[in-house]
């Protein structure tokens, strides 16, 4: 899979929030074989000289970084957060995330579109997190977004893919990678996204919130691989009635 100038073997993008501890997180990240990690940008506690950071625990060379603009309520705030992230020197791509509703955490379509345009003009590799609106996804691509990241269901909800039809439409029309982002709760959900033809899956809570995050990281890795293979292999059509797998003739029963 290619996004902008970056090529990836892994189709799993992994968030870095809400793990029980850094050791479990590090193991989960390694087991997942992800090549892309997301982060958020926040104020430091300047009075705490310790504040260990997960970035200190990993080999930075093994990953591409996809900071998000979470916290932004409009395009201008998203651009500012993106530029802060970029100043770190650890911003390969930017995930545009402009939340328009505090309760559902669904993205603001207008501000997402504006932020995407502004960041593209500034030369960023831009991956907008968007709702599963088909027309909006097309408009983001027309602006030049390097990938489209439609949500499966609300962030952190684990409800899986609520509107496979829209996701299918988005995937069918897209000429850039489609990464299903947000709402994935289980290996089944991830495999389903991949079987629909998604190029990848971005998830966080499905791993970090699992009883055993390391095992779940492996399960999701395998599910994404399985789903992709299934997509490439081409599944059979669904039929209403049974069609026997065994020959009907050649045995002397009931004849």
């Amino acid at each position: 899979m290619k996004i902008g100038e970056f090529s990836f073997q892994s189709r799993l993008f992994l968030g870095t929030g809400k793990y029980p501890d850094f050791d479990i997180q590090k193991q989960a990240v390694e087991v997942s074989e992800t090549e892309v990690l997301t982060f958020a940008v926040r104020r430091m506690n300047i009075f705490d000289k310790e504040q260990p950071n997960f970035l200190e625990k990993i080999n930075l060379k093994n990953y591409r970084f996809l900071p998000n603009t979470a916290g932004a309520k409009n395009a201008e705030e998203a651009v500012r957060i993106a530029k802060l992230a970029d100043a770190s020197g650890l911003c390969d791509m930017i995930k545009v995330e402009v939340i328009g509703c505090d309760k559902t955490l669904l993205p603001d379509p207008v501000e997402t579109l504006r932020a995407t345009e502004m960041l593209l003009n500034d030369g960023f590799t831009v991956l907008p997190y968007t709702s599963d609106d088909v027309v909006l996804a097309r408009k983001l691509e027309e602006l030049g977004a390097h990938a489209i990241m439609p949500g499966a269901s609300p962030i952190g909800s684990g409800q899986g893919i609520l509107n496979p039809l829209n996701l299918q439409f988005i995937i069918d029309q897209a000429n850039v990678p489609v990464i299903v982002d947000a709402g994935i709760g289980s290996p089944r959900d991830a495999a389903y996204a991949m079987e629909l033809g998604a190029d990848g899956v971005l998830l966080n809570t499905a791993v970090s919130g699992a009883d055993d995050p390391v095992k779940m990281a492996e399960a999701l890795k395998l599910a994404i691989h399985a789903g992709r293979l299934g997509y490439e292999a081409g599944r059979i059509e669904k039929k209403q009635y049974a069609i026997a797998s065994s020959p009907k003739e050649g045995i002397s029963i009931g004849g």
């Binding site: 997301t38 430091m44 998830l203």
Partner: peptide, 8 residues
């Protein structure tokens, strides 16, 4: 003064 924190 900001830094990267965990996020999805």
């Amino acid at each position: 003064i900001v830094h990267f924190v965990g996020g999805g």
